[in-house]
Computed example of a mutant assay.
Amino acid sequence: MSQPSTVRLERTTPQIAKITFANPPVNLVVPETLVRLHEIVTGFEKDPDLQVVVFTSEVPDFFLNHFDASQAAGIPAPEHEGGNPVWTDIVLSLSKAPYVSIASIRGRTRGGGNELALACDLRYASREKAFFSQPEVGIGLVPGGGGAERLPRLLGRDRALEAILGSADYDADLAERWGWVTRTLPDAELDAFVDATAARLASFDRQALATAKSQVNRATLPPEADLVASFAAFGNTLTQPGFLSRAAGIGAVAADKGLDVEYRLGEYIGLVNQTL
């Protein structure tokens, strides 16, 4: 690989793995992110020791961001004929895996990044620095990686509609009150808390963890077919005039305002739509 990967794997103990996102300056999801993440998650399926996987980021202010729409053509196709889209396969694998997945969220997590966090079993967020969004509708797209299926189960129908249709950024305090995250912690305490939680779970019986998770899954997971359908709907909107005009508008604003657009994406989405 000619460039450093946007996803890094570290095995801290035989029972605990850490996956770090590293695509500065704003941790966009690019095709290589999907390929590498799918490779890692698929490799975990044959690991007899793994009990906890922690997701984190080394990019200040961003956990994992939305897809880079300019690279949509490079999104990998299913590995086998009739197989699930790669992104769908990743989030489904995390939900159904026998290990416990934990998202340690410091910074902005939007779109595909938010959908990966939603696929994790536990989500812990920095009270001061975490922000959440499903911005797709505001730029003429629809969520394609499980946001539309998982948020209603966590937030309720009306709050999920506000979050998805409104395409705004939500701070960690509101996300915690709504059930978007498991809990928030002071930023200075986040890493130690996640590490302690991972170590505690890693000390438990692996079979008991996996069986208890499968019991909860039966009551809470969306049907697999719904996630497949959502990714197809997302792909369809990538070619629609509504997205193309808004993408051009966001691109023009980004050329003028730079990275501030990614820091305050919800605000800029509203401004761009007012000019159309």
Results as ranks from 00 to 15, higher is better:
Val29Lys: 03
Val29Pro: 09
Val29Ser: 10
Val29Gly: 07
Val29Trp: 01
Val30Glu: 13
Val30His: 04
Pro31Tyr: 05
Pro31His: 04
Pro31Ala: 06
Glu32Tyr: 01
Glu32Gly: 00
Glu32Cys: 00
Glu32Ala: 13
Thr33Glu: 00
Thr33Trp: 10
Thr33Met: 00
Leu34Ala: 10
Leu34Asp: 11
Val35Met: 08
Val35Trp: 00
Arg36Val: 15
Arg36Asn: 03
Arg36Thr: 14
Arg36Gln: 12
Leu37Ile: 08
Leu37Asp: 08
Leu37Ala: 09
His38Phe: 09
His38Thr: 05
His38Lys: 14
Glu39Gly: 09
Glu39Cys: 02
Glu39Met: 03
Ile40Glu: 01
Ile40Trp: 02
Ile40Asp: 02
Val41Cys: 06
Val41Gly: 04
Thr42Leu: 11
Gly43Phe: 02
Gly43Val: 07
Gly43His: 04
Phe44Ala: 08
Phe44Ile: 09
Phe44Thr: 10
Phe44His: 07
Phe44Gly: 08
Phe44Lys: 07
Glu45Leu: 13
Glu45Lys: 15
Glu45Val: 14
Glu45Trp: 01
Glu45Pro: 01
Lys46Ser: 15
Asp47Gly: 06
Asp47Thr: 07
Asp47Met: 06
Pro48Gly: 04
Pro48Met: 04
Pro48Ala: 03
Asp49Gly: 05
Asp49Asn: 14
Asp49Met: 09
Asp49Tyr: 04
Asp49Lys: 12
Leu50His: 09
Leu50Asp: 07
Gln51Glu: 10
Gln51Asp: 01
Val53Asn: 10
Val53Tyr: 08
Val54Thr: 14
Phe55Trp: 14
Phe55Glu: 12
Phe55Ile: 13
Thr56Phe: 01
Thr56Gly: 11
Ser57Cys: 04
Ser57Asn: 03
Glu58Phe: 00
Glu58Trp: 00
Glu58Gln: 08
Val59Lys: 02
Pro60Tyr: 00
Pro60Ile: 00
Pro60Cys: 02
Asp61Trp: 03
Asp61Pro: 00
Phe62Met: 07
Phe63Lys: 08
Phe63Ala: 11
Phe63His: 09
Phe63Gly: 11
